[in-house]
Deep mutational scan, measured.
Amino acid sequence: MDETGKELVLALYDYQEKSPREVTMKKGDILTLLNSTNKDSWKVEVKITVNGKTYERQGFVPAAYVKKL
């Protein structure tokens, strides 16, 4: 869990989004878990840094590609 009590997951593999509802992640990324009720895909939040500014983006990733921490 992070400092706000949200559950975290670790990306086990790289994943490139295939639709606007998904998010891209790299192996080793730590993501905030938002919903894990679907056995196939979990909703997560990723933090992306562009030019020194951090943005948050929500979307789905394959459940088999992440592990709860």
Rank of each mutant, 00 (worst) to 15 (best):
V46A: 08
M25H: 01
S19N: 14
M25C: 05
N35H: 06
S19D: 11
M1I: 12
V66A: 02
D29V: 06
Y15N: 01
T49W: 10
K68V: 11
F60A: 01
T4D: 12
N35I: 07
N35C: 13
V44E: 00
T37L: 09
E7M: 12
E17K: 13
S41T: 11
T37N: 11
D29Q: 14
Y65E: 01
G28D: 04
T24A: 05
E7Q: 14
G52T: 03
P62M: 05
V61L: 03
W42R: 00
V23N: 01
D40H: 14
T4Q: 13
G28C: 09
F60M: 08
T32G: 05
V61W: 02
F60G: 00
F60H: 05
E3D: 13
K53A: 10
E56F: 15
P62D: 04
S19C: 10
I30T: 04
T24R: 06
R21G: 15
M25T: 02
L31D: 00
N51C: 12
W42A: 00
D40Y: 15
L8A: 05
E56G: 13
K68G: 04
K67D: 05
K6T: 12
Q16F: 14
M1L: 12
G5T: 13
R21E: 15
D40K: 12
W42S: 00
A63D: 02
I48W: 12
K67Q: 12
L10R: 09
E17R: 15
K53Y: 12
K26Y: 09
K67I: 14
E7D: 10
L34K: 03
F60V: 04
G28L: 03
D40L: 12
S41R: 14
L10T: 05
K26A: 07
E3T: 13
T37F: 10
D2I: 14
V66N: 00
Y65G: 05
D40P: 02
L12V: 05
K68R: 13
T24E: 02
D14A: 05
D14C: 08
L69G: 01
R21F: 14
L69Y: 08
Q16D: 13
V46D: 00
V66L: 15
N38H: 09
K26E: 03
P62W: 07
Y55S: 07
G52F: 04
K43S: 05
L10W: 06
K18E: 08
V46Q: 12
N38A: 08
E17Q: 13
V50M: 11
E22T: 05
E17V: 05
S19F: 07
V23Q: 01
V9C: 13
F60R: 02
K26S: 07
D14F: 06
A63M: 03
K26D: 01
L10K: 06
P20A: 11
V61P: 00
N35K: 05
T4H: 14
S41N: 11
L31A: 07
K67M: 14
L33T: 01
M1S: 12
N38S: 11
G28W: 06
Y55G: 03
L69W: 07
A64W: 10
Y13R: 15
T32W: 12
G59N: 00
G5S: 12
D40N: 11
K67E: 11
T54W: 07
S36A: 12
K6Q: 11
D29W: 14
Y65H: 05
K43F: 15
K27H: 04
D29L: 05
K43R: 10
N51T: 04
T37Q: 11
I30A: 01
W42Y: 05
K53H: 12
K39P: 15
K68M: 11
E7G: 11
Y65R: 04
V66G: 00
E56A: 15
K68F: 09
D2A: 14
K68A: 08
Q16Y: 14
A63H: 02
G52I: 03
A11R: 03
N35F: 06
T32H: 08
G28Q: 00
W42C: 04
A11D: 01
D2T: 13
V46C: 09
P62N: 05
L33Q: 00
K53R: 13
T4S: 13
Y15E: 01
Y13F: 12
K68S: 07
E56P: 12
V44T: 00
Q58P: 02
T54K: 07
V23A: 03
